[in-house]
């Protein structure tokens, strides 16, 4: 099972396991990772599962979709080059570990 490390702005990181084929957002919600809301249930509709992916993993992920791209333009915390919506990042056994930063705010 792929491991996701959520680095928190002001507390120790959350290290959780997720199932391949499911999303990074689900791994966060199922494990009560602070700062990841996922209010729309993973439809890229609410932009409350924004994360900053550590640069070394960016190229390993599926590219950003059009809708995700637009939603990222208006997240509560500023968009960076390494911004993604957690619900659109699929976990994959080919990538056994991924590190992301949780932004200071989602809503």
């Amino acid at each position: 099972m792929p491991t996701v490390v959520f680095h928190q702005p002001d507390s120790p990181p959350d290290v959780v396991e997720g199932k391949a084929g499911t999303s990074l957002m689900r791994a966060a919600v199922e494990n009560n990772v602070r700062g990841i809301v996922g209010e729309c249930g993973g439809q890229a509709m609410c932009a409350t599962c924004h994360v900053y992916v550590h640069p070394e993993y960016l190229d390993e992920l599926e590219p950003i979709g059009e809708d995700e791209d637009e939603m990222l333009e208006d997240t509560a915390a500023p968009r960076l080059d390494r911004s993604r919506l957690g619900c659109q990042v699929a976990l994959d056994d080919a990538l056994p570990e991924i590190h992301v930063d949780v932004p200071p705010t989602q809503v």
Binding site: V29, E30, N31, G38
Partner: peptide
């Protein structure tokens, strides 16, 4: 998809 994880 749970609203919160089981341990919450």
């Amino acid at each position: 998809l749970p609203l919160r994880g089981a341990t919450f």
